[in-house]
C-alpha cells in the first residue's frame, strides 16, 4: 500500500508540474501579439458565422429576382451583393464558413479518435503487433491519399456530408497515430505505468486511465494544426464539385462558382475567398503560436 500512496504523491507532483507547463504556455500564448490578434479575429468570424445570418432577412437558398448579380453595397438589403440567382452572398458565405468550420472540426475529431486509439495500442502493445500496425500506417502513407478521398467521395454518394467526413477523417489519422505511438513508447517506461501494472491493472485499464489522458496535451496541439488542413481539404473537394452540393453553400463551392463568374461578377469570387483566406491565416497563426508556446526549446 505504501507503494500506491507514493504513486499518488508522484502523480500529484506531475500534475502540478504539468499545470505549470500549461500556465506558462498560456502566458506565452497571451503575450504573443500576432497570436492574440488571430484568436480574436477567429472568434469574431465564428460568432459572425453563427449569429450573422439571423440579422439578414434572407435565407441561404432564397432567390431575389429583383436583384440578380448585384455588387456589394448597391442594394441596402444585400450587404455583400448577390449571385447570379439573386441569392444573398453575405448569408451564403457565412453559411459556408459555418459548414467549413463544422466539417473541419468534426473531421479533426474523427481522425483524432482513430489516430489516438491506433497509436496508443500499437505503442503500448509493442513487439510484433506494433510492427504490423505501424507498417499498415506506412503503406497507407504511400497511397496517393487525396486520390483515394476523391474516389471515395465520388463513388459513394457524392455530396453526402457523412461520406465527406469519413473520407477526410480516414486519411487524417495517420500522422496522429505516429505522434501518439512515439509518445506512448516514452510514457510506458515511466514509473507510474510500472506501478499501475504492479497493482494488477489490466492493460486496457492502463491504456484508458493512464496512457491516453497523458497523451492529450501534445495531441491537442496537433489537432489545432490539423483544422486548417481539414478546411482546405473540404473546400478543395467542394471546389472540384465532389463535396458540399448546391444549393448548400461551402467556401469551396462558392469559390468554384465565383471563379466561373469572375469576368462579370468578381465579387462572387472575392467575398468567399476573403473569408477563407482570413480563416486560414488566423488558424495557421494560432497553431504556430500554440506550438511555439508549448515548445520548450523556444523558452
Amino acid at each position: 500500500m505504501a507503494g500506491s500512496t507514493r504513486v499518488c504523491g508522484m502523480s500529484e507532483v506531475l500534475a502540478a508540474a504539468q499545470a505549470g507547463l500549461w500556465r506558462r504556455a498560456g502566458r506565452r500564448l497571451a503575450s504573443a501579439r500576432g497570436t492574440r490578434l488571430a484568436l480574436t479575429v477567429l472568434i469574431l468570424i465564428a460568432l459572425l458565422a453563427v449569429i450573422g445570418p439571423w440579422f439578414s432577412p434572407w435565407a441561404f437558398d432564397q432567390l431575389d429576382w429583383q436583384h440578380l448579380a448585384v455588387p456589394p453595397g448597391h442594394v441596402a438589403a444585400h450587404w455583400l451583393g448577390t449571385d447570379r440567382l439573386g441569392r444573398d452572398l453575405f448569408v451564403r458565405t457565412l453559411y459556408g464558413v459555418r459548414l467549413s468550420l463544422l466539417i473541419s472540426v468534426l473531421a479533426s475529431l474523427v481522425s483524432l479518435v482513430i489516430g489516438v486509439a491506433w497509436g496508443a495500442v500499437a505503442g503500448f502493445a509493442g513487439g510484433r503487433t506494433d510492427e504490423w500496425m505501424m507498417r499498415f500506417v506506412d503503406v497507407l502513407y504511400s497511397l496517393p491519399y487525396l486520390f483515394i478521398v476523391i474516389i471515395l467521395t465520388t463513388l459513394f454518394q457524392r455530396g453526402s456530408i457523412g461520406v465527406l467526413l469519413i473520407a477526410i477523417g480516414a486519411v487524417g489519422w495517420l500522422t496522429t497515430a505516429r505522434i501518439v505511438r512515439g509518445e506512448t513508447l516514452a510514457l510506458k517506461r515511466r514509473e507510474f505505468i510500472e506501478a499501475a501494472r504492479a497493482t494488477g491493472l489490466t492493460p486496457a485499464a492502463i491504456l484508458g486511465r493512464h496512457i491516453v489522458p497523458n497523451l492529450l496535451g501534445p495531441v491537442a496541439v496537433y489537432a489545432t494544426l490539423t483544422i486548417p488542413q481539414m478546411i482546405i481539404f473540404e473546400s478543395f473537394l467542394s471546389f472540384l464539385g465532389l463535396g458540399v452540393q448546391e444549393p448548400h453553400a461551402s467556401l469551396g463551392n462558392l469559390i468554384n462558382v465565383g471563379a466561373q463568374e469572375m469576368q462579370s461578377a468578381p465579387w462572387m469570387l472575392l467575398v468567399p475567398a476573403l473569408f477563407l483566406v482570413t480563416l486560414l491565416v488566423c488558424l495557421n497563426l494560432l497553431g504556430d503560436g500554440l506550438r511555439d508556446a508549448l515548445d520548450p526549446r523556444e523558452r
Binding site: I232, S235, G252, A259, L269, L276, L280, N284
Partner: peptide, 22 residues
C-alpha cells in the same frame, strides 16, 4: 511566406487569373 503557405491553389489560381488576366 506565412500568407503564401496558408493559401490553397484554388484561391490563388482564380485570383491570379482575375488580377493578371482580366
Amino acid at each position: 511566406a506565412a500568407l503564401a503557405v496558408a493559401l490553397p491553389s484554388f484561391v490563388t489560381g482564380p485570383l491570379f487569373a482575375l488580377v493578371f488576366g482580366l
